[in-house]
Amino acid sequence: MKATDIHKSYSHAQGELEVLRGVSLEIKEGEALAILGSSGAGKSTLLQIMGTLDKPTRGELTCEGRNVLTMTDEELSQFRNQEMGFVFQFHHLLSEFNAVENVMIPCRIAGESPKLAKEKAMHLLEFMGLAERATHYPNELSGGELQRVAIARALVRHPKILFADEPTGNLDSTTSGKIQELFFRLKEEMKLALVIVTHDLTFATRFPKVYRMKDGMWV
């Protein structure tokens, strides 16, 4: 995936707020990189644009040669469902569904049968060490367990890129360390590209490639 000269502005009562100021970034197959910066630097906005959850004010975004910005909403939804996984600071699990049902959701959206979706979900929960928690609901899980379920949901369709936005920001140091180790293990075993946004310098410097952002630009 390649982002070229990405700008993003928001209109408000006082005028234009420029969040990204000509940022370019290329993600290669199987690559791991971190985007480091303080709150408000623009790193989450860039991640949302590269994840096709938002559109730039101007710039280009291509994936395997395809112009992502010209896709229809339906094409984008299918593209995200197949090619990308997302993990956020907050797990965003649905409270009315148990762990395995939450992980199944992307498969069901893609039209897979309940049986196949459940098999895939259970396989990932077992990999995460959560097989015994599969029928537990979000309010019955710890913070680390919730985030592992969210990671399983992000990976159930075997995406090529996993985007994670402050994935350990709400966790204690011990749990955070375990989740960090899990990301690197998943990257190697699933052969996916891993893009992490964080303000945690210790986490970021574990990556072979680190980009630092300030005021919407690389520094």
Results as ranks from 00 to 15, higher is better:
Lys2Thr: 12
Lys8Trp: 04
Ala13His: 15
Glu18Gly: 04
Val23Met: 11
Val23Pro: 03
Ser24Ala: 07
Ser24His: 02
Ile27Asp: 06
Gly30Pro: 06
Glu31Met: 08
Ala32Pro: 10
Leu33Val: 06
Ala34Ile: 04
Leu36Ser: 11
Ser38Ala: 15
Gly40Lys: 01
Ser44His: 12
Thr45Pro: 13
Thr45Trp: 15
Leu46Asn: 14
Leu46Ala: 13
Gly51Leu: 05
Thr52Ser: 09
Thr52Gln: 06
Asp54Leu: 08
Asp54Gln: 11
Asp54Trp: 03
Lys55Tyr: 01
Pro56Phe: 05
Thr57Cys: 02
Thr57Tyr: 07
Gly59Val: 01
Gly59Gln: 11
Glu60His: 02
Leu61Asp: 06
Thr62His: 12
Thr62Met: 05
Arg66Met: 10
Asn67Glu: 14
Glu74Trp: 08
Glu74Met: 03
Asn81Val: 01
Asn81Ala: 11
Met84Asn: 00
Gly85Thr: 03
Phe86Leu: 11
Phe97Met: 15
Phe97Arg: 14
Ala99Pro: 10
Val100Glu: 12
Asn102Phe: 07
Asn102Ala: 01
Val103Tyr: 13
Met104Cys: 15
Ile105Thr: 05
Cys107Val: 09
Ile109Asp: 06
Gly111Ser: 04
Ser113Cys: 08
Lys115Tyr: 02
Ala117Val: 10
Lys120Tyr: 09
Phe127Ile: 04
Ala131Trp: 00
Ala131Phe: 02
Glu132Trp: 07
Glu132Thr: 12
Arg133Ile: 07
Ala134Gly: 08
Pro138Arg: 02
Pro138Phe: 02
Asn139Gly: 02
Glu140Ile: 06
Gly143Asp: 08
Glu145Ala: 07
Leu146Met: 15
Gln147Lys: 14
Arg153Trp: 12
Leu155Glu: 12
Val156Gly: 10
Arg157Gln: 14
His158Ser: 15
Ile161Trp: 04
Ile161Glu: 00
Ala164His: 00
Glu166Gln: 09
Glu166Ala: 11
Asn170Leu: 00
Leu171Met: 09
Ser173Val: 10
Thr174His: 15
Thr175Ser: 13
Thr175Arg: 11
Gly177His: 03
Lys178Ile: 11
Ile179Lys: 05
Ile179Asp: 04
Ile179Trp: 00
Glu181Leu: 13
Glu181Cys: 07
Met190Pro: 05
Met190Asn: 10
Lys191Asp: 15
Ala193Leu: 06
Ile196Met: 14
Val197Tyr: 13
Val197Arg: 13
Thr198Asp: 00
Thr198Gly: 07
Thr202Val: 01
Phe203Pro: 04
Ala204Leu: 01
Thr205Cys: 03
Phe207Thr: 10
Arg212His: 12
Met213Gly: 06
Lys214Ala: 14
Gly216Phe: 12
Trp218Pro: 06
Val219Ile: 14
Val219Gln: 14
